[in-house]
Write a protein that binds this DNA or RNA. Structure first.
Lengths: 108, 108
DNA sequence: CTGCATCCAACGAGATACTG
DNA sequence: CAGTATCTCGTTGGATGCAG
């Protein structure tokens, strides 16, 4: 082969899949949310307590974005009081693995 | 082994190496700059032409940040007119490889 | 050619209070 | 418990003009 065939993106940020991915996971708190869920399913309140300083608004936003992108599932158990559990999808765990790689690189 | 040993980060964004890395590469145009340099050394003007729409200010900012973090080298050839060449360091190429991985994941 | 200085508009994210 | 609604502020990045 002549080049390593990585589906070379067009050169504007809006249409580059890598740029879009990184802009998304680069938003504040997102990596930590993924890390938490990579360890296992978590409830809303657990996540909030695990990440001191995150606002409810931001946490909800992150979880919704992740759900829209098919990276997490949201499961509602109609208990009383209500219980909602978040978990990574297989594709979300793949991303979690990539974050692990970055962690290794960043701390080397 | 019991867990995959990834030096679990503290749970606030400011001190998480992964968060810092992703916030940085997630800034606009940065992935594309790295991509370009991952293919080979480039001059300032070449980069600007390769990425239509990037402003000189932003390009300069990105290159300086990358240099400060030890990911690119800046070489000045005292020609007339002046010529400046940018290239990835070994560590920069490692990051480039990670971006390739993300590209594969993102386009799968 | 390779940048730096300035000004400005847009977006992201925190604080806080309130609801199903 | 699990969010939503506002409001506000800081930062990012684009446009432009000037300098070495």
């Amino acid at each position: 082969m002549e080049s390593t065939q990585v589906t070379l993106p067009p050169l504007t940020p809006d249409v580059c899949p890598v740029t879009q991915t990184l802009a998304f996971v680069g938003s504040k708190w997102t990596p930590l949310v993924i890390f938490q869920l990579h360890l296992g399913a978590r409830r809303y309140g657990e996540l909030q307590r695990a990440m001191p300083g995150i606002s409810p608004k931001t946490l909800a936003e992150r979880l919704q974005s992740l759900e829209e992108r098919g990276l997490v599932t949201r499961t509602v158990y109609p208990d009383k009081p209500p219980r909602v559990e978040y978990a990574l999808t297989p594709r979300g765990h793949e991303l979690g693995d990539i974050l692990d790689t970055i962690a290794t690189w960043a701390t080397a």
